[in-house]
């Protein structure tokens, strides 16, 4: 059965892929179709409920149109999530491949570093780091990427351990390929299934982490915003029943993370790898 057939047989994966496409169009094309002012504040139009004065989802405490804000916030959430997930995947893949390929003492040292990193919960480390460096979008990507490469490193190391003794690796070495070349052209390409599937989950987790950091008030600074920061702003009005400040960004996070998890499951069916436990 072809990969595409296997993927489409998983109905949730198809639903996830469609939802992702719709969301990406919403945050990228949306602001072109529905342009709104998202930098200058308009306190005269603050805290309007949905539908008033041509604001389909109302406005927030600074008078920003909430629907437009959902779009620009989504750009930040998705951008940070995708790039941080990609960075974590690249770093983790290289680290794990080298550790597993070289083995011995190098492997032991490299994996104890991974163990230590996993022992420090990411949210705590991120909060400490964001008190040290001012959180801009670029900084968030780098910092998030650098705290979340540990799980892929473990997965790829396990794969590399089994790949390194295969005949084609031995043959490449015998023909005079350098270690670097062997890792890059023989070991890593043979772990690509695991890498791709894990990258999907990595992006999902990165989007959740960005939301947590922003919700805790340590994320990107205004007027830049993301879905987590919108929720952080909205919670102050929860007791006035301002549900429109909370449900849209919250549901957006849930939908995108769910969709990525569904797609990841579907991709796993295609490449048939194990390794995701939660």
């Amino acid at each position: 059965m072809t990969g595409l057939r296997r993927f489409t047989r998983n109905r949730l994966a198809v639903v996830g892929a469609v939802a992702l496409a719709v969301l990406v169009l919403f945050v990228l094309i949306g602001p072109l179709v529905y342009p709104t002012e998202q930098v200058a504040t308009d306190l005269g139009a603050a805290n309007l409920p949905p539908g008033v004065d041509g604001h389909p989802l109302g406005t927030d405490a600074l008078g920003y149109d909430n629907l437009g804000r959902l779009m620009v916030a989504g750009q930040v959430s998705l951008l940070v999530g995708v790039l941080a997930g990609a960075l974590a995947t690249v770093v983790g893949t290289l680290w794990g491949a080298v550790a597993g390929y070289v083995g011995g003492a190098v492997d032991v040292v490299m994996m104890r570093v991974v163990d230590a990193g996993i022992a420090i919960p990411a949210i705590f480390l991120l909060l400490v780091l964001s008190t040290i460096v001012r959180p801009t979008v670029g900084m968030m990507i780098v910092v998030l990427g650098l705290v979340s490469w540990l799980v892929p490193a473990r997965l790829i190391r396990a794969e590399a351990l089994s790949v390194r003794t295969r005949d084609y690796v031995v043959a490449a070495r015998a023909m005079g390929a350098s270690h670097g070349r062997t890792v890059l052209t023989h070991v890593i390409p043979n772990t690509v299934g695991t890498v791709v599937v894990n990258a999907t989950f990595q992006v999902a987790d990165a989007i959740l982490l960005v939301a947590y950091i922003s919700f805790l008030g340590m994320g990107v600074q205004p007027p830049t915003t993301d879905w987590g920061a919108m929720l952080n702003d909205g919670i102050n009005y929860i007791y006035q029943g301002a549900w429109w400040l909370i449900l849209p960004p919250g549901l957006a996070i849930v939908v995108v993370v769910c969709a990525l998890n569904f797609v990841g499951d579907g991709l796993r069916d295609v490449v048939d790898v194990k390794g995701r436990t939660a």
């Binding site: 959740l208 919700f215 929720l231 909370i246 919250g250 996070i253 849930v254 769910c258 998890n261 939660a278």
Partner: peptide, 22 residues
């Protein structure tokens, strides 16, 4: 379970506050 896993804890808490408290 996947939906629950994908829901940020703080959003879940806010929903519970809105529904069960407010």
């Amino acid at each position: 379970a996947i939906v629950a896993y994908s829901t940020p804890t703080f959003f879940l808490g806010m929903l519970l506050i809105l529904l069960l408290s407010q």
